[in-house]
Simulated assay, not measured.
Amino acid sequence: MQMKNFLIDENLKELTKHQTVVLPIACYKTTINQHIHGHIPLHWHDEIQFVYIVKGEAIFQVNEEWIAVKQGDGLFINSECLHMAKDKEQSDCVYICLNVSPYFILSPELFTRYVKPYIQATNLPYLYIDAQKNWGKNILEAILKIYQYIEQTPPYYEMDITMQLTYIWKNLIDNGFKLEYVQTEIVKSQRMKQMLSWIHEHYAEKIKLEDIARAGQLSRSECCRYFKRYLKCSPVNYVIDYRIQKSISLLQQENYTITDVAYQVGFNSTSYFIKEFRSSMGMTPLAYKKNFSY
């Protein structure tokens, strides 16, 4: 299975149902540059995620940190952490993505002791999975097995998957990572999500910096610091980028003109929309529209 696109709601939460017919998991291959946006946009979900790079190299953002993951290695991304991914230097990166509900990893009797402390830790937004380390190699091999089970559905594959998940989690927590719980980090993450959520709800309207700051209960200057820390850009630039992202799906609809799209996504002039779209996508909206097959 190849995942080329997924939907996120106004809170940046991914809407894709991460489950097979009977299990609360999903495991599929993703080619980053084949995604509708050319990258995997910023989002989050309740499920934990394991990534195994099978070709090329990717750069992931998890909360405010950026991580380069090379071919053969992987990444663990914790529950509810903001994350995105982009191809590194046009490497045509392909990775296997395993999403699984934290509640499915172990039985309820073991969840509180062996899972909950890890998904609540504030110093574990991600963990690099190094194939050169024994625990990392074990996890990556198990991810590949789960992908093959789901693709081939051999007899009793559901039980084989559950055994591999337990094996993955045991190797993850057995590497000696020390857990921390800092309330201020939880608050910062919540405020960032609140500001992004507000932008996603109001992107088609006139947006002021003080509106975004108010959504995160911050001053204007502190709001700017949050965006610089988490996203390496200003709030205004993020709004522009998000409007460009929203315009892409509209441009793929034959009945919308360039001017229609510009105003629907919040730009106050067609010329400004064309300028920003070209800067972001490397072509004009009209060229993109002509290249898209209805």
Rank of each mutant, 00 (worst) to 15 (best):
M1N: 11
D9W: 00
N11E: 05
K13V: 04
E14N: 10
Q19L: 01
A26E: 01
C27R: 03
K29Q: 14
T31W: 09
T31R: 11
I32A: 15
I32V: 15
Q34L: 15
Q34H: 15
I36M: 12
P41G: 10
L42S: 14
L42D: 12
L42N: 12
W44H: 12
H45V: 08
V51A: 11
V54Y: 14
F60E: 15
E64M: 05
W66S: 12
A68K: 10
D73M: 02
D73K: 01
F76R: 03
A85C: 05
K86I: 08
D87C: 05
K88N: 06
E89F: 11
Q90F: 14
S91P: 02
D92Y: 06
C97N: 15
Y103S: 12
L106F: 11
Y114S: 10
P117E: 05
I119V: 09
Q120N: 13
L124E: 06
L124F: 04
P125E: 10
Y126C: 09
D130C: 08
A131Q: 12
Q132C: 03
Q132A: 02
W135C: 11
G136C: 01
G136F: 00
G136M: 01
A142W: 00
K145V: 15
I146N: 01
Q148F: 08
T153D: 04
Y156D: 07
T162K: 08
I168S: 13
I168D: 10
D174E: 13
D174I: 13
G176N: 09
G176D: 09
F177I: 06
T184N: 14
E185W: 08
V187W: 14
S189K: 08
M192I: 10
K193C: 05
K193A: 05
S197E: 09
S197W: 03
S197H: 07
W198N: 07
Y203T: 06
K208N: 10
L209E: 14
I212R: 04
I212F: 04
A215K: 00
R220P: 14
S221R: 08
C223Y: 03
F227Y: 10
R229G: 07
R229V: 05
Y230I: 06
Y230L: 06
L231R: 07
C233N: 09
Y238C: 14
V239K: 13
I240K: 05
Y242Q: 04
Q245K: 05
I248T: 06
S249H: 03
N255C: 13
N255F: 08
Y256D: 11
T257W: 07
T257S: 15
T257K: 06
T257M: 03
A262G: 02
Y263L: 12
G266R: 00
F267E: 02
S269Y: 01
T270V: 04
T270C: 07
S271Q: 10
S271F: 10
Y272M: 15
Y272W: 10
F273V: 03
I274V: 13
K275L: 14
P285F: 00
Y288R: 01
Y288F: 05
K289S: 10
N291G: 13
S293E: 13
